[in-house]
């Protein structure tokens, strides 16, 4: 297996005439936990969305476990990825969304078993058994038959995590997964992520505004500004001795107004 779980090589991403990423480079090692911080509009979500194949790229290459995500090799020529290639590559990635995106018309159990049954071809019994294990892991074993509307935000997000894990991804993408939650519900979700990070079995990229949490669980923190990684390094250094003026400004704005920047 490739040393890196994820590599961005000179990636360009535009929205119309707006260039977000230009010659963007980033490498993430296997089982590394990376937090991405930065102000709104700096491209954090787009980075994750490119990996989850929700946004395509306009130039460069993205490698997932050493293999190009948005390209495929055909008779020695690189062609744009087709749906089959994307389908195969997506199996390595899982995503948890800020607004949960649970299926509101399905029970919690069905939310979690839908893809394992119909994508991975698991039997109903084994998918259900696995779902119950995952629900126990996130502390919701009694909610299997509930509908999302009957859950609190924190519970919904824990189901969102269980649903992503049920597909056994090796890379987990977490996009501000506590930003839509009431403050008192944040911890129960972070607790689950803390456990996952401790297992050291996943590569995790988390976009977050929870600075203390990022500092606690990350191997590395990247500060994004206007589509660039302005500064990156171990959390102690980024939070204690940021080198760049913009990193300092961002972090101090957070200390002043912890919840105003989502």
């Amino acid at each position: 297996m490739s040393e890196f779980a994820i590599e961005f090589e000179n990636v360009t991403k535009k929205f119309g005439d707006n260039v977000l990423f230009e010659d963007f480079n980033l490498q993430i090692r296997q089982n590394e936990v990376v937090s991405i911080i930065g102000s709104s509009g700096s491209g954090k979500s787009t980075l994750l969305r490119i990996l989850m194949t929700l946004e395509n790229i306009d130039g460069g290459k993205v490698l997932v476990n050493g293999e190009p995500l948005w390209h495929r090799l055909h008779n020695g020529i690189w062609l744009p990825a087709d749906e089959r290639h994307l389908h195969r590559m997506r199996g390595q990635l899982g995503m948890v969304f800020q607004h949960f995106n649970l299926f509101p018309h399905m029970t919690v159990l069905r939310n979690i078993t839908e893809a394992p049954i119909y994508v991975l071809g698991q039997s109903r019994e084994s998918a259900r058994a696995q779902a119950h294990d995952l629900l126990r892991m996130v502390g919701l074993e009694d909610k299997a038959e509930a509908y999302p509307a009957e859950l609190s935000g924190g519970q919904k997000q824990r189901v969102g995590i269980a649903r992503a894990l049920a597909m056994k991804p090796s890379i987990l993408l977490l996009d501000e997964i506590t930003s839509a939650l009431d403050p008192e519900l944040v911890d129960e979700v972070l607790e689950v992520i803390r456990k996952l990070a401790a297992e050291d079995a996943f590569t995790m990229i988390l976009v977050t505004h929870e600075m203390y949490f990022a500092r606690e669980i990350s191997d590395r923190v990247c500060f994004f500004d206007a589509g660039k990684v302005v500064e990156e390094g171990p959390p102690e250094r980024i939070f204690n001795q940021p080198e760049h003026e913009r990193t300092r400004a961002f972090l101090s704005s957070f200390l002043k107004a912890p919840s105003s920047n989502t």
């Binding site: 389908h87 997506r90 199996g91 119909y118 649903r163």
Partner: peptide, 27 residues
Amino acid sequence: VGKGQWEASIALNLSPYRTYRDVILPQ
């Protein structure tokens, strides 16, 4: 049907058929 439902379906690797049948059309 919200954009998030499509995105969750892609993230879970559901086929277009499953996406329409199980996620989008019922809603």
